[in-house]
Amino acid sequence: MFKATIYVTLKESVLDPQGVAVRGSLQTLGYEGVKDVRIGKKIEVILEGSSREEAEAQVKEFSEKVLSNPVTETFTYELEEVVSCASQ
């Protein structure tokens, strides 16, 4: 059993209106050192796979196809072997 943690973020070239709004709030609160905020998603997936390579191939495939939109977003992932679903 594997646990994949996928982080989906907007591409650098794509404006993040939510991030801009949060940056403004943080700066208003006096956090003057805050220069930029980008908001993304963290998605955890538990999956079965006979090998790490097989699980990784699946994670890459569904992250490209479903979890992220390649027009506006990019993703990174971490993959770890876990004993069962209950171990997360």
Partner: peptide, 17 residues
């Protein structure tokens, strides 16, 4: 239609939220 690839591009959150 953009998600399924029948039209190019994507629709993002409105610029002023």
């Amino acid at each position: 239609l953009t998600e399924v690839g029948l039209l190019p591009g994507a629709l993002r959150r409105n610029s002023r939220l």
